[in-house]
Amino acid sequence: MKLNGKHFKLSEPVSILNFIKDKNYNADRVAVEVNGKIVPKTEFEKTTLKDDDEVEIVCFVGGG
């Protein structure tokens, strides 16, 4: 799949929630877009990422 514009090998379909956990991101601190559509946090568990998806993840850190 494409992750933030770069190729990324996804070995098997995985939920957004587990994908985020594997990447050490926190689900409360990200914005996720799959194939051009924003996915709300409440859908992270039931949305499955596949190898032909285009995924964009923005992770926020604190400070302002």
Binding site: D28, R29, A31, P40, F60, G62, G64
Partner: peptide, 12 residues
């Protein structure tokens, strides 16, 4: 905002 959870909440 300062807090990353608030940042993500507003942006989303």
């Amino acid at each position: 905002f300062d807090n990353p959870v608030d940042k993500a909440m507003l942006v989303n």
